[in-house]
């Protein structure tokens, strides 16, 4: 005989969490400078998407798109872009 397991909930507060967008808040508000992509220069090489530590860049046939809600403005994308197609600009207050 093998035992089986059944999930039965409790009403007590548990230390568990569920996946949700923005779990750490809108981290884009931490940004001091904003990366701006010139998609005419972009060759769709995906390097910015691959290297972005925040996983906020998506490259498609139109070019690279940055989710500014969560981009913290580290500038790594600017450094790894082989075509210099991304520039940092100061955030406006």
């Amino acid at each position: 005989m093998v035992i089986t397991m059944k999930l039965v909930k409790t009403e007590d507060k548990l230390p568990i969490s569920y996946p949700s967008e923005g779990a750490a808040g809108k981290t884009g508000t931490w940004r001091l400078e904003r990366p701006i992509v010139n998609n005419e220069m972009c060759t769709r090489c995906y390097l910015c998407e691959i290297y972005c530590p925040g996983n906020v860049i998506t490259v498609d046939k139109e070019g690279a798109h940055i989710d500014y809600n969560y981009c913290k403005g580290c500038g790594i994308c600017v450094k790894v872009c082989p075509k210099n197609a991304i520039k940092m600009e100061p955030e406006e207050e």
């Binding site: 969490s17 949700s20 779990a23």
Partner: peptide
């Protein structure tokens, strides 16, 4: 810390 605070988590 990076994954965020309960009751949410940023990892799927």
């Amino acid at each position: 810390v990076v994954v965020g605070t309960a009751p949410k988590t940023s990892m799927r």
